[in-house]
Simulated assay, not measured.
Amino acid sequence: MSKAVRIVLNVVAVMALFSVSAFAAENGGETYKWAHYIAAGFGMGIAAFGTGMGQGKAISSAVEGISRNPSASGKISTTMIIGLALIESLAIYALVVALILLFVV
C-alpha cells in the first residue's frame, strides 16, 4: 500500500470519528463547534501544500524546458503562467470552502 493511500485512509478514519461524535451530541452538535475551525484549518493546510507542490513542479519543469530549448522560452513561460493561475485557483476554492465552514455552518 502506497504512502498516499495510507494518508488518505487515515484522514477518512479521523473524519469518521469526528462525525460519529458530532451526530451523537445533544443540541445539534453545538458542543463540537470547534470541529469547524479544525476542518477549515486542515482544509487550507492541505490545499496550500498541494498547490505549493504543484507550482514547484510546474516551475521546475518550465525552467528545465527553457534551459533545454531557449528559443521556446516565450511559449513555455506563457503556458507556465496560465498553468500557475489554474493551480492557484484550487487554493482559492479551498479558501472559499474554509470561509463557508467558518462563517455559514
Rank of each mutant, 00 (worst) to 15 (best):
M1V: 08
M1H: 06
S2G: 12
S2V: 02
K3S: 10
K3N: 05
A4W: 09
I7M: 09
V8S: 07
N10A: 11
N10M: 08
A13E: 11
M15G: 10
L17K: 09
F18P: 02
S19Y: 09
V20I: 12
V20G: 01
S21G: 15
A22M: 12
F23H: 10
A24V: 14
A25T: 05
A25R: 02
E26L: 10
N27R: 09
G28A: 11
G28C: 08
E30S: 13
Y32K: 12
K33E: 15
W34P: 08
W34M: 07
W34R: 09
A35D: 14
A35S: 14
H36D: 12
H36R: 13
H36Q: 12
H36G: 06
H36T: 08
Y37L: 03
Y37D: 06
I38T: 12
I38M: 13
I38D: 12
I38F: 11
I38Q: 10
A39Q: 05
A39V: 04
G41Y: 11
G41D: 11
G41N: 11
G43V: 14
M44E: 11
A47S: 06
F49D: 00
T51L: 01
T51V: 15
G54N: 03
Q55I: 08
G56D: 01
A58P: 05
S60N: 03
A62D: 04
V63Y: 04
E64Q: 15
G65A: 15
I66F: 04
I66A: 10
S67N: 10
R68E: 13
R68K: 14
N69H: 00
N69D: 04
P70E: 13
S71R: 13
A72W: 02
G74W: 00
G74M: 03
I76M: 15
T78Q: 11
T79Y: 06
T79Q: 11
T79N: 13
I81C: 05
I82W: 06
I82V: 01
I82L: 15
I82T: 00
G83M: 07
L84I: 00
L84T: 00
A85R: 02
A85C: 09
L86P: 10
L86K: 14
L86N: 13
I92Y: 05
Y93N: 05
A94V: 11
A94T: 13
L95K: 04
V96N: 06
V97Q: 09
V97R: 05
V97L: 14
L102G: 00
F103Y: 12
F103C: 06
V104D: 00
V105S: 03
